[in-house]
Amino acid sequence: MINRYFVLLNKEDNTFVCCKQLLAGASTTLEEVDVTMTADITVGHKIARQAIAEGEKIIKYGVSIGSATKDIDFGEHIHMHNMKSDYIASHTRQSRSGEE
């Protein structure tokens, strides 16, 4: 746990996982760097531990869980809008995402 809001699961990760909700506009300190949330981050969601370029792997549990589909800033929410599976498309109730 790096602070009361986020946990780092593996030292290789470029993501933090939220363990306590933090709303857009709220600030926190991640590994000694201050950052302001640009979206509501709820429990279980991921943010970027560092800037991630489009096409780079997203690392969680020390392994790749997919690729960035856009450039992602430090502290930004990482989800279906900016990353995708390297195996098979995910879907929401409204649509599928991550399809070519």
Partner: peptide, 16 residues
């Protein structure tokens, strides 16, 4: 995939 909409709402993004 074996992936439900609730998985995404709960912060999971991909099958892997």
């Amino acid at each position: 995939g074996s992936f439900a909409p609730g998985n995404a709402e709960g912060g999971l993004t991909t099958q892997e």
